[in-house]
Design a protein around this nucleic acid. Sequence first.
DNA 1: TAGTGCATGTAATGCGTTACATGATTTC
DNA 2: GAAATCATGTAACGCATTACATGCACTA
Lengths: 172, 172
Amino acid sequence: MSRSAVTPVVLGMLWHGPLSGYDIKRAVERSTAFFWRASYGQLYPELKRLAADGLVSATDGSSGDRPRRVYALTEPGRSALAAWLREERTTVQLRDENLLRLFFADALPRAQALGVLRDRRDGHAERLAVLQQIAKGAGADPDFAALPLRWGLAFHEWGRRWCDDELQRLTP
Amino acid sequence: MSRSAVTPVVLGMLWHGPLSGYDIKRAVERSTAFFWRASYGQLYPELKRLAADGLVSATDGSSGDRPRRVYALTEPGRSALAAWLREERTTVQLRDENLLRLFFADALPRAQALGVLRDRRDGHAERLAVLQQIAKGAGADPDFAALPLRWGLAFHEWGRRWCDDELQRLTP
DNA sequence: TAGTGCATGTAATGCGTTACATGATTTC
DNA sequence: GAAATCATGTAACGCATTACATGCACTA
């Protein structure tokens, strides 16, 4: 029962109740996409596999001629989710092109190099605005489910401030 | 002249002077690896391609029987680097398994869910220690080249504090 | 009736890592 | 003389995205 990157998302999203592959995809876009994504190309095959392994059960939810396959967590599925939640790995993978630019920015005239830092600050500001929009629309999540969004908001605020501080420091 | 993810690293690393593929790999491990990585499987083919495109020039630096190919930036290579540095894209890609765990942690008994947050804090603390070690050994970088490390230090400090604050908030 | 959203799925593609092959030189 | 480091390179693999194919149902 080896797991891929989508496995936990699928199991987790089914925790609150049965969903279709399409539903899961939508839920991911609304919530985890900015730190954990999932594409149809992963989702549908994975659901099949999990059903074959007995971690989820599939029932037909078609209405009329429109096909719809609804998946639910089974008991083994619940256990698998809980087991994964208790793992202690804390893998953070970061890929940040602007940071790479900053690293090489000494190759630019100073004014332009400072522009790279300003771009960074603006990037944080933009993303912050997006998350604030999302936060407005979001209902009252349970305690822990609310944390990633809170984290995102705090992170971009911090990042913006970091840029401002460095800009201050680097401009006489 | 389409560029892949390694292109800018290669050009940037050659800015200060000629290097071999092996040298570049080592430089990446020491400096950019935590936000931008590069493997031999990318590096060597890319160096060939860049040489074919005239962005770098290859000279033989073999000593005795040990082969060594040393690459240097050409004028077009310098321009290409500068052009990339002036781009304004600010793509930050994040993949954070612990954040995903937090998102689903309501499925755990509260005590264990808080453990997920504590794991996160410990992860930040560990990485912070690693970067502090690196910072000790690092010489005086030029202004901008020093920024990514400064960022890393500040980020993990912030992240640790964020966890502490949330732990406080969630424990009565 | 045209457009949008619901819904499932796969094939092709691209990208990056891992693993391996090979061998020289330096250091302990 | 063993181990570590220098050094180049490629093939296989795994993983994720993109793009496409297909069609129903609702709504403006």
